[in-house]
């Protein structure tokens, strides 16, 4: 590790042609540094890669149509149906891969909607302050005190069985206030930093200060909030599905759980129908949480973890031993 740093510093300045190459190189170094001695990052990212690849290539990887009856009810896992079949004779393996597409899309877009609102509200309110802040803060608080899941249930019930599109929008517009608050307080801290004041003194426009000077400083917090919202939205989508408030004809992890429950698969011994989507949900949630954790570890050096702390512990033990204290 030491070597790469020193050789970097002594390297001759490359011309403009290798600019792109150099950028790639520094990005590669940064990526390596991020994963180095950061097991949560390694596990989380590889798990998530597998899940995403599975969802992306679902049509290629699956052998059966997930929406068609392709087997007898509740066939136990076997060579043809690796994860068994449902009560209605659908292939569970095909369903879980296709379901991943729907569930992840809902969660992802809900996260994007929520974070976009959160950033817009949080940064404007935090940077501009005054009356605008007061009003925006009031709206945020109103959304914050609304119990989200019950609200979703009522809305979903009111609208009847709703499609995934509606659920995405509902989740998006109800889960932004938490992110907005965190972003607002962080913006308020940055607003008084001298680099912002000096940009103002320089005559920089407000919109540029928000977009170019403040926003890039919030990336880790925005990304963390985004992942949190995605995890939440995935859970909420599944929850609504189980309750039968989603569209049960679409294949998603939520609707799979719904059918598994309706067919009382656990009672009849068809554990695979229930457990497979449940485990898929847990794994995805876990992977996202691990990624979130690893970002925290890198962006917050006060969390004293990482490989150098292991080295310190080893060295400390040795010196303590030498002095006869251990």
């Amino acid at each position: 590790m030491n070597n790469s740093i020193t050789s970097d510093a002594n390297a001759p300045v490359p011309g403009h042609k290798s600019e792109f190459k150099k950028k790639c190189h520094s990005a590669w170094i940064k990526t390596k540094a991020f994963f180095h001695g950061n097991p949560p990052a390694i596990i989380g990212v590889s798990l998530m890669t597998v899940i995403l690849l599975g969802a992306l290539f679902a049509p290629v990887l699956t052998t059966h149509n997930p929406e068609k009856r392709v087997a007898r009810p509740h066939v136990a896992p076997n060579a043809e149906h690796v994860l068994g079949s449902t009560r209605n004779g659908r292939d569970v393996y095909s369903q879980v891969l296709h379901g991943a597409r729907k569930s992840l899309t809902v969660a992802l877009f809900a996260g994007i909607i929520a974070m976009t609102i959160a950033i817009a509200v949080g940064v404007t309110s935090g940077y501009l302050g005054g009356k605008i802040d007061e009003w925006m803060n009031f709206v945020t608080n109103v959304f914050l005190v609304f119990p989200q899941l019950p609200l979703l249930i009522v809305l979903a019930a009111f609208l009847g069985q709703v499609g995934s599109m509606v659920i995405t929008v509902l989740l998006g517009v109800t889960s932004w206030p938490w992110g907005a608050r965190v972003i607002r307080s962080q913006t308020m801290a940055i607003r008084n930093k001298e680099f912002i004041i000096s940009a103002e003194v320089m005559g920089e426009s407000k919109i540029r200060i928000i977009l170019v000077e403040i926003l890039p400083n919030l990336i880790s917090i925005v990304f963390g909030g985004f992942l949190g919202t995605v995890i939440y939205a995935m859970g909420a989508e599944a929850g609504l599905g189980i309750l039968g408030l989603g569209d049960a004809t679409e294949v998603s992890w939520g609707s799979m759980l719904y059918w598994a429950q309706v067919s009382s698969s656990l009672y009849t011994g068809a554990w695979w129908e229930m457990l497979v989507p449940a485990i898929a949900l847990a794994l995805t949630g876990g992977a996202l949480a691990l990624i979130n954790m690893s970002i925290d570890q890198v962006s917050n050096p006060k969390l004293k973890t990482g490989p150098h702390m292991k080295l310190w512990k080893k060295m400390n033990r040795e010196t303590m031993k030498r002095r006869g204290l251990l």
């Binding site: 001298e194 680099f195 940009a199 890039p216």
Partner: peptide
């Protein structure tokens, strides 16, 4: 400004 660590945008 006084604080050389605060007067430049880290990003």
């Amino acid at each position: 400004f006084q604080d050389p660590f605060g007067s430049l945008n880290p990003v």
